[in-house]
Design a protein around this nucleic acid. Structure first.
Lengths: 259, 259
DNA sequence: CGAGGGTTTGAATTAGATCAACTCTCGTGG
DNA sequence: CCACGAGAGTTGATCTAATTCAAACCCTCG
């Protein structure tokens, strides 16, 4: 068995860190804004919104805004888990690797996702940017201090973890018991709902590669491609280009996702 | 495709509830012991140990000790999530069903497991006893009051959820990318470690049926059986009876679980 | 225009599923 | 005490969905 979908992780990767620098390009003249977290356009989707406006400077003090380029790895499975991450823009894939290169993508993270929750001293998965990622990096100790001071934040994290767990169980059902057709259809439906921008969209963005979809669904690239082609031939979807899919018949797609 | 591993859930099942009754049969004469949670032999493994001894009466007030017989279902997917559960004895299987009967077991719960974490108003999975189960049932409102009063309990739940999430990701890797042989070997290794009783055991108890193992590993009963037979033929395991497996060569089993 | 990476399509192969006996154990009752 | 039957597990023979191998097909970009 040979597995080639994998791009090796870049081990000693350096990422550019900008500490408390506002990303608002409309105001390039202001240096060191009083409160970068107040300007954060991901505040609505993020766990940090458990912290009231009056404490935002305290929040800003605990975090570093960081940019990650596509293909760069910002969490590596097995390495010391010394920080937590909150994605504020872009998208990333989370995955586990086996010794022989087999890969399972356990999820895609977009704006508002919080990464790194782990009791263990090391990360249980790797994370790599798909589109350019902007994220807030919380050193372990600082986050724990925040948690101690803001119980609402801890509650929010618990809710997030519970939601992730439910999603993981759904994914186990998909991986263990669904056919290729059902997996692809389920994936398209989920992507339509999971978009960071509100209501279910008919036009689904697929910023990840076919190999990523395959490794997320437990299939091969070829099977994903064939299945998408089939769904298009049946008039259920349209594929204007490789990064987008139009859901032309959501009802039939829903039926294809179940029995 | 026909799927027969499934035993239909019993919908309107009644379970016997004993409110704050000590299970210690050695002291049948004492009625209404001052502090049942202090006697709890699962306290070491349970999240409740985040609550100090001095507050145990408060804890006991919030919970009901309940017994579940094998085959009985005490959580049903889709139903109103009005309670949380802490298993204190026995074992249960957690699973999701598809409309046509396909089943994915998402985990096995033993002493110390906390169930029902969910933001949603309904349970995302079903739970059915395998061996006779003893559990503490926490009505939703009472647990939330406990969480508000004991931040350490909330922290403990967050740790648990994070640990479960890591396990779920490992299971996704298994379901999405491992061969039948690797799945069965991984399962046996995990069971040897996950036993509620401390260190890895060479003799692994398998209280669940072959069909349960199959639905947990995303395989069929026949494939599980054949794979176990093969591992036995290779001298890696012994199968004294259907409910137990002896790990005869843990090193080779570990190799069988990976590439 | 040509190279190279990603994707699609086609043909051959296979791991695991399906179908079908057969075995084992255990409880029941004549 | 033993025949019987039911449920669970095992084993064998076939089948198939998805993988593997192989080749074309697109884009994009220098």
């Amino acid at each position: 068995m040979i597995w080639v979908n994998v791009r090796p992780a870049l081990p000693g990767l350096r990422v550019g860190v900008q500490n408390r620098v506002s990303m608002t390009s409309a105001e390039p003249s202001r240096q060191a804004p009083a409160d970068p977290c107040a300007d954060c356009d991901a505040r609505g989707e993020s766990v940090c919104n458990a912290i009231g406006d009056e404490f935002l400077p305290r929040l800003a003090e605990a975090t570093q805004v960081t940019h990650i380029e596509p293909g760069q790895c910002f969490i590596t499975e097995g390495e010391k888990a010394d920080a937590f991450f909150n994605i504020t823009a872009g998208s990333a894939k989370l995955y586990k690797l086996m010794a022989d290169g087999r890969r399972q993508i356990t999820g895609f993270a977009v704006r508002g996702h919080f990464l790194g929750l782990a009791v263990s001293a090391t990360y249980a998965f790797s994370a790599e940017a798909i589109e350019p990622v902007r994220l807030c990096r919380f050193p372990r100790a600082k986050l724990f201090r925040l948690l101690a001071d803001f119980p609402a934040l801890e509650r929010r994290l618990l809710e997030r973890a519970a939601t992730e767990l439910v999603a993981a169980q759904e994914q186990m059902l998909l991986l263990g018991r669904k056919t290729a057709r059902e997996r692809v259809a389920s994936f398209l439906r989920a992507q339509a709902l999971a978009a960071p921008c509100g209501r279910p969209r008919a036009m689904v963005a697929l910023p990840m590669r076919r190999g990523d979809i395959a490794d997320y669904l437990g299939l091969t690239i070829e099977t994903v491609s064939r299945t998408l082609t089939r769904l298009r031939a049946e008039g259920i979807i349209e594929i204007p280009d490789q990064t987008r899919v139009l859901l032309r018949d959501p009802a039939r797609l829903a039926r294809a996702a179940e029995g």
